[in-house]
Design a protein around this nucleic acid. Structure first.
Lengths: 330, 330
DNA sequence: CTGAAAGCGCTTACAG
DNA sequence: CTGAAAGCGCTTACAG
């Protein structure tokens, strides 16, 4: 069962290959009568254009690479954030009739593979997700000449254009809220300190703390629940009198809740807890979690638009506002 | 900045295009000395093969489509199960040096788009995830002639080869455990009844209940937390004396825990709860959740192997064992 | 082991 | 508006 080619359709319709090509690609300059005949032939033969042949001549593929730069053990691990981002991005891309090629990279071999793939022009553009400080990919990919947009502020020396949520502002709002609630000894559990989301949320916290003349109390986490448990236990040991904690992710906040429960602290009576992300699970904790919501879909939409609009290196980044969602944990 | 072609490399190395092609593709029949020269030229020019040209002649693309057939609102919503599966599958695929094209389909337009893409031979094979009863995609994709393997038992009339976890056995083990713990009025919260995972887990429950001469007590859910809350409330209304519930997903079990808490029932004292999946969150509920673990990575590995081995329609399905993980909720 | 040549299936100036 | 023809960048029998 060989697939019919343009040639076959042309023969059947009694026209040239060029004409069939024009009809298939929706060119305006085709006689309506002929168009109808060609369309019928396409239909009858079940013709579907060969994408390889097409992109060989057009030099475009219609695909966009979504590069997730993470230890594979974590990427999708259990963190809904990535999932939500990936869904939002791919939805936007498909609305623009682009296919999404999902690439995970987490090892030198993985970086190589992704770089080769992009350099080989398998994709017309790349969206970079979740980069860490040591990540060689932003630089390598920008060097291929393929358009690159970063999801989240890049930490690499190469700075592709990016869109991000307002992490600093969100953290600020969280701490402000805690202060307004009368909390005085406010700790934070940070994200990975080699990622901009981790860094920026910490910066927002520190800014407000030092601005109000208070001492920072910091424990480092990595966005996972388990790290939230460990960090909270550590904080309790460092300052048993703390009365609030701002966790840089909801997952870590969930871990913190568990550590607090184990330590016999009541939330929010003894310790208030604020998370970040507003994943669905935040509504299901006991007590329900106060958290900072990110405009995930909007960031995705913006990134796709930037990529399709051909935004160049050096362009102004776009930073979208976050929103504090107050529930029962504060 | 034009990309160098095979031609350019050949010129630089002083050999024919055919020879360069052989070297690049690792053909054994090349004089080692020549190979070295060619490799140097490739290096100096930064040559990367053009995939479109290559696949135009080889008729292969090196890509595998991962088709997720779900309302976009749910796919990645907050359910880590999909994420875990997608990660596992793409890891296996990349180990086999295949690229992963992620395709979400949830509307007639989406189905069409996916079908055209596959029919256009953008991919060498397709893995089908999460089909619902009314899903036209299995049939449409099988008809394209592209190899299709299903993740999970298909519910369509067309039956592509598949690999699945032992859903029936897992449900059976959950109910057996509940019976062994002395529970007598055991309810279940089902998954969507147009999906095989929902159907099979319900079948396992029913089988054991009727086998032990008990009446089934069923509420329908859709795998989400919210549906777990609603279903549990319903069950409590239907039979206030129930002493156990088997939820067909951990997320629904989490919802059930919340509904039970609200209703003033203690877990496990008044009501024992068992989930299904063993996602990470199951360790963080209060009390920690007893659940049925699925071999997600193993299923993924098997599916990829089946696809690459060219398993044909009509082949024996592979069903992998599940395992009961006992924690504090029973 | 190597090269000349055909051919994969399209698109797109260029004429007419 | 339509067609003949060149060309996109590879791979692979086929000779030698």
């Amino acid at each position: 069962m060989k697939r019919p080619t343009l040639e076959a359709v042309a023969a059947r319709a009694g026209v040239s290959r060029a004409t069939v090509s024009r009809v298939v690609n929706g060119s305006a300059t085709v006689n309506p009568r002929i168009r109808t005949v060609v369309l019928r032939a396409v239909e009858e033969l079940g013709y579907v254009p060969n994408p390889a042949a097409r992109s060989l001549v057009t030099q475009r593929t219609g695909s966009i690479g979504l590069v997730v730069s993470e230890p594979p053990a974590r990427v999708f691990s259990d963190d809904p954030f990535f999932s939500l981002v990936i869904r939002a991005v791919s939805q936007e891309l498909e609305a623009a009739d682009k296919q999404v090629v999902l690439m995970m990279a987490s090892s030198p071999a993985g970086y190589d593979r992704v770089e080769r793939y992009v350099a080989g022009r398998h994709v017309d553009g790349v969206i970079l997700l979740s980069q860490h400080g040591s990540d060689p990919l932003p630089t390598a990919l920008v060097r291929t000449g393929v358009p690159v947009i970063s999801h989240g502020r890049p930490v690499s020396t190469t700075r592709p254009p990016y869109c991000d949520a307002d992490n600093v502002g969100g953290a600020r709002a969280a701490v402000e809220h805690l202060l307004a609630r009368g909390r005085r000894r406010i700790a934070t559990i940070t994200g990975p300190v080699d990622m901009s989301a981790g860094l920026d949320r910490l910066a927002g916290y520190r800014e407000l703390m030092s601005g109000s003349g208070r001492r920072s109390l910091v424990a480092v986490g990595d966005f996972t629940r388990d790290s939230g448990v460990a960090a909270m236990s550590q904080l309790l040991e460092d300052d048993p009198g703390l009365d609030a904690v701002f966790a840089a992710s909801d997952l870590m906040a969930i871990g913190a809740l568990r550590a607090l429960r184990r330590a016999g602290r009541r939330v929010p009576d003894d310790v208030a807890v604020v998370g970040f992300d507003d994943i669905e699970a935040a509504r299901f904790t006991d007590p329900a979690l106060t958290t900072v919501r990110q405009p995930i879909a909007e960031v995705a939409r913006t990134i796709v638009r930037m990529l399709l609009d051909g935004v160049e290196e050096g362009a102004e980044p776009v930073v979208l506002p976050t929103e504090l969602i107050v529930r029962d944990s504060t």
